[in-house]
Design a binder for these strands. Structure first.
Lengths: 256, 256
DNA sequence: CGGTACATTGAAGGGGCTCAATCCACGTGG
DNA sequence: CCACGTGGATTGAGCCCCTTCAATGTACCG
């Protein structure tokens, strides 16, 4: 990507713009607006907080590179991971809507984030209602992911949860070009998986072992390898519709 | 309310406008826009579906009266309730963003809903970016409720879950004027509570009994009575911040 | 080489589930 | 007026999935 000329038909260059453009077929002008949305891009070191629970923020952040997790730590020290942010995702939503951030967000790898001041976002709404709708839609997808997460934890067994979790990451990473057909690199510790899926570390270990023994998935080093996508999807009752089949692009075409 | 003159300083008359106005201090003009957003108000009978999983929708709906639940039924028949919609809430989001609704929504009491065509919503973005931001914020709150729900199911014991659930309803109903200080009417069956909190009906029963024995809450007929709000909040680790302390109003004042 | 971070495996216990019976309120029709 | 069906709540017994606690293994790193 370093040899790419930055000229005319170069297309979107940031993960966010790439992602939104992918779905919504944004015009070059709109991509322009998005790319100028981001200010003050800054690096965040592994294990550093991007957003701290209880503090106040005037911006949201776009995660440009790296992985981050949003979570809450309860008073007894237990942690619930709410979601995993990938490049192109917003983080800090809905933190910036409250006087004090409700959750913390931490980088699990070295990362790059850039702040989008909230007032900037309001300007966006004025500049392009289509873009606003696209953002709206983007949050809608996020809401769908929450709902799936809820179903996962509420109604599925440990092995189904883990299977579903790994499949969701596969699709999400494929969408942003960071996974090939059946595998991806991801710095998942069993503790992280456990905190996301409400399972204890020993049980995550046992569950992964079973998935490995059944020749469905394996995690080696930091690489997740889906060995039997079909069987795994069946096991997890996984339907990727909520991650990929969108109508907004169509709805938006009318006034493009 | 029937004796109220419909003139100048009448204020918002629909639950949605009332709720948004309450938080965001909308101008009369903006309230006007919202009230004309709704078309085709229609009644929905108890136990009828408002949105059916798998079907396609071009509108979202505003719930004007009554209670509705959003849920998914898994292939083995188990149900996970994702949220409970109260008067003034949107339902059908994010269904309208997908080619096929991901979840079903059913009225648990007789209800009134009115459709908001999606293209109408896009117009809204053009007419008033402040309103768009307010809607944005409204969905942000909803996202926060999902997150709390996730934490609830993921990390809390049965008794904490039930306590948290009943408290959240208390605050939400108070905001729209449907609960007094320590009690509210709500057609909650133990099956509904169980499906929302991922508990079996027998265990919901046992848990409610314990709460009643400890003189914390009781549900009689269809009335929830919080007997010791403080003790219950402590038990549930409940902090209502995510339901009430918002910054958007302040942020919006600047260009009001 | 000792320390840290993470994974693995075993044993024992418990919280909540399943299954099942019972009860109660209510409506409906003979 | 009572028999019956239905929807919901309650309570008990047994069990299982997952947790907790604990020990061990292993790779990496200062």
């Amino acid at each position: 990507m370093s040899s790419e000329p930055p000229a005319a038909k170069a297309g979107p260059t940031t993960p966010l713009a790439r992602k939104l453009a992918w779905f919504a077929g944004l015009s070059e002008e709109e991509i322009e607006i998005i790319e100028h949305l981001q200010t003050a891009t800054q690096p965040v070191r592994r294990n550093r907080e991007i957003v701290s629970e209880g503090r106040q923020y005037d911006s949201l952040f776009v995660l440009l590179e790296g992985i981050a997790v949003r979570y809450r730590v309860l008073h007894d020290g237990r942690r619930q991971v709410l979601n995993i942010a990938l490049p192109g995702d917003f983080v800090g939503f809905p933190a910036c809507f409250f006087e004090a951030a409700l959750y913390s967000i931490t980088a699990v790898t070295d990362a790059m984030v850039s702040a989008v001041p909230f007032v900037r976002l309001l300007q966006l709404f004025e500049q392009s209602s289509r873009l606003a709708a696209t953002m709206f839609w983007s949050f809608g997808c996020e809401a769908a992911m929450y709902a799936e997460h809820l179903i996962d934890i509420g109604r599925r067994s440990a092995i189904e949860r883990v299977a579903h979790f790994l499949l969701e990451l596969l699709i999400r990473l494929q969408v942003i070009g960071l996974a090939d057909r059946q595998s991806y690199r991801m710095p998942l510790t069993q503790e992280l998986i456990g905190d996301a899926l409400s399972l204890s570390v020993p049980h995550v270990s046992r569950t992964l072992r079973q998935l490995r023994d059944d020749n469905l998935v394996s995690i080696e080093d930091q690489r997740v390898i889906i060995k039997d996508l079909e069987a795994l999807s069946a096991l997890a009752d996984f339907d990727q519709i909520y991650l990929s089949r969108f109508r907004i692009p169509k709805l938006l075409e009318r006034d493009g």
